[in-house]
Computed example of a mutant assay.
Amino acid sequence: MNLSNFGMDSITLAGPLEAKLQASRDAGFSQIMLWAKDLAGHPGGFDEAVRLVRASGLRVTGLQVMRDFEGLSGTLHEYKLDIAKQMLRICRAVGAPLLLVCSSTSSHASGEPALLARHLAKLATLAVPLGVRIGYEALSWGRHINQYEQSWEVVQMADHANLGLVIDSFHMLARQANLDYLQEISSDRIALVQLSDFMWRDIASAEERLETARHLRVFPGEGAHSDELADLLRRLDRAGYRGDYSFEVFNDDYQQLPLAVVAQRAHRSAKWVTDQVLRRSLEMRRRTANHPTMA
């Protein structure tokens, strides 16, 4: 585990796409999570945005975000399916290996798990020819799926090799999730781990979760849940997860700071994770190996 496992998220940084790419690279990151609006809204046009990403030398962690996809019917389902196909083409253009899908908040969506699973499996099948994987994430304010245990159950039910689970520390912390359930999840089915924290212990309502999530997240090591984050990371490490970690930090204060300052905060956070969390997990494994339990 080293810095190459961690990536910036473009949503954290202010400024144009090219400045975000430069700041991430200058801070020592080799990958970045992109949002489709970074590309669609570029002043030079979509093709120029793609060229900038390709020329940056940064690996694209994935593309954000497909919202309110699963559980719809009729014309609403067909509409969202068409949008999803366009998002997959964007993934292909920038070399994003993962399209993130967050659990629906729509009042028009069914909560029937079998239907949700079928829709996600359909999307995963569409993504195969483009070389893109689908990652499904439980929003803590999702209408039907709002805890990681529920999203894992839907992923299991879909039973599609091209569909994985996205673990998001914010939504787990906001819901005070039971981390014991992580042992039920196969590490090779985890598509991505997104990391962030926030500055107070409890969030009382869905509205407060939404407000905190979109405006007031902080980097791991900066918030009020360092112990819980450390526990989460150690559990994932012990379970064998060796994939990417992305810092998904929505923070209005960071949007007012120079990009280099924010990117360096992210770099310190990656060091906090590796030095203070995962290193301790490795030390524990070494102690266990040196002092095995006697039969």
Rank of each mutant, 00 (worst) to 15 (best):
A23D: 01
A36L: 06
R238S: 05
R89V: 02
L13T: 02
K80W: 01
G57S: 09
V60I: 13
A204D: 11
S110W: 01
W152G: 07
H42P: 04
F247S: 13
A263F: 08
Y136C: 05
A23C: 06
F6W: 09
L72E: 00
S10E: 10
F247C: 11
R133V: 13
N178A: 04
G131K: 03
V132I: 07
S246P: 13
R286N: 11
E207A: 06
F198H: 06
Q276F: 13
P16Y: 07
V101R: 00
V261F: 10
M1K: 12
A84V: 01
A260Q: 12
D202R: 08
R25N: 03
G95I: 10
Q150P: 04
V53D: 09
D82I: 00
D237S: 11
E48G: 09
D68Y: 00
R54T: 14
L88T: 06
Q255L: 15
T125K: 12
E283Y: 13
W141F: 15
M294H: 06
W272S: 13
S73G: 00
D38F: 04
Y79I: 01
L195Q: 01
A93E: 02
S4Q: 14
L236R: 01
D231R: 12
G45W: 08
V166G: 12
G62W: 01
A224H: 05
G71F: 05
M33I: 00
F46K: 12
G111Q: 07
M87D: 09
S56V: 06
V249E: 03
V193S: 03
L126C: 09
Q194L: 03
P16C: 11
A55Y: 09
A19L: 12
N290A: 09
A289I: 12
G111F: 05
A127E: 03
R279M: 12
M157S: 15
L232R: 10
R265F: 09
A27K: 05
M294Y: 01
A138C: 07
N251P: 11
E48M: 12
R287T: 09
S107C: 01
E18P: 11
V261D: 15
Q276L: 10
L52Q: 14
S169D: 08
R25V: 01
R201G: 05
E78R: 06
H267T: 15
L123K: 10
P113H: 05
V50C: 12
V60H: 08
S106R: 11
V273K: 10
L179R: 14
R25K: 13
